[in-house]
Design a binder for these strands. Structure first.
Lengths: 210, 210
DNA sequence: GTCTATAAATAGATAGAC
DNA sequence: GTCTATCTATTTATAGAC
């Protein structure tokens, strides 16, 4: 593994586990067992590392979003698809733990992040519309935008909300809980079968918890 | 106005308008037209100012939360009550714009903030239960917790979500939109009258927008 | 590519005169 | 209570040897 890749790899681990704000360039080089000078040879600074990590995240997420087209045709599909999105976010969770700071400090990243979020929103909106056309969901058009916004809020702030709650859930359990939370937003639009599907989801949720 | 109060007043303005992270002790003293030394005479540093501002916010919010007991008995009451909560949050919006950083940097504030959020959640839960008992809402008990969490998420992250959207709404319009957003979460549980109430809300929303 | 050493920049904090 | 001057600490960034 080349030093450049090791830097990216270890930085991501440090940022995710200890928080991005807490890590200085020197901390990262220490964790790698290299000198600060060497780190600066490969990256102009922490900024450049973060930008490179965002490149990777952005590309992976766009692939996931584009992969949804016409592929989500049932509630179960939707469940699985939420899982995929949340796991990708979890891999780069440091971006989401302090969104505000990040957007303030890196204006160029901010606009790329906003564009990515916009594509996420469009994707969610299309998935809901597809499920509507397939009669899986019946969503009052007047509530459709608010529902999309609310799902986006869950997908964007679940990690911050968890930090607020001090839930101490580890990754998989937190992802599971969040999928469940989003599904609960949709249940009221599932009609007669909503409660059955909900029950199945709850037993599935309970079975996989702890 | 005493210097100590002027410091708190101007700091709140600066933090809300320019962001807390961006302001140093020297920036604050410059804005006040006093010396850094004088600022340090009144407050040990930016930390102490933030703590004092949180004292004020916490006290006001607890009064609001306790004032809800038995007072929210209709959808209209609920609408107004959301307004009151959101306006209080808006007055101290810098706390909510970078929640993560704040909780990381001030562990003592973090636990007080969590306790306040917990009381908020209990309040929301009780209000929903009251509306349920009054037959204004019919909430499936299996969805009740998820709904409460979702409302809490809106109340806690509406400002960050808006920053993400670059909506450029000014305060009153943003508060209005957020109240509407939360009400949309409740509409599915309003039964037959839900759509009527929704229509009224929408026209009210549209009328007050822009 | 990698190191050591050190400079430069920023933010936090205090001493002592008035 | 308020000021000027200064000091410390932290973090970022570079120069030059190997």
């Amino acid at each position: 593994m080349k030093t450049r890749d090791r830097i990216l790899h270890v930085s991501l681990l440090l940022f995710n586990d200890e928080g991005e704000a807490q890590q200085t360039a020197v901390d990262i080089s220490n964790a790698l067992g290299i000198s600060p000078g060497n780190l600066y040879y490969h990256f102009k600074g922490k900024d450049a590392i973060i930008r490179a990590l965002f490149d990777a995240f952005e590309e992976e997420m766009r692939v996931i979003l584009r992969g949804s087209r016409g592929q989500v045709t049932s509630i179960e599909d939707n469940w699985v698809y939420l899982y995929i999105i949340l796991e990708e976010i979890y891999d780069f969770r440091f971006f989401y733990r302090n969104l505000g700071v990040l957007l303030d400090r890196y204006p160029d990243l901010a606009s790329r992040f906003r564009s990515l979020v916009a594509e996420q929103r469009t994707t969610i909106h299309n998935v809901l519309a597809d499920l509507g056309k397939a009669d899986v969901l019946t969503i009052d058009p007047r509530l459709s935008e608010a529902l999309t916004d609310q799902i986006m809020m869950s997908l964007t702030f679940w990690l911050e909300a968890d930090a607020m709650n001090r839930s101490n859930l580890e990754g998989a359990a937190l992802i599971h809980k969040t999928v469940f939370q989003v599904m609960c937003l949709i249940v009221p639009y599932m009609g007669e079968n909503g409660f059955d599907a909900l029950s199945r989801m709850i037993s599935h949720y309970e079975a996989n918890r702890t």
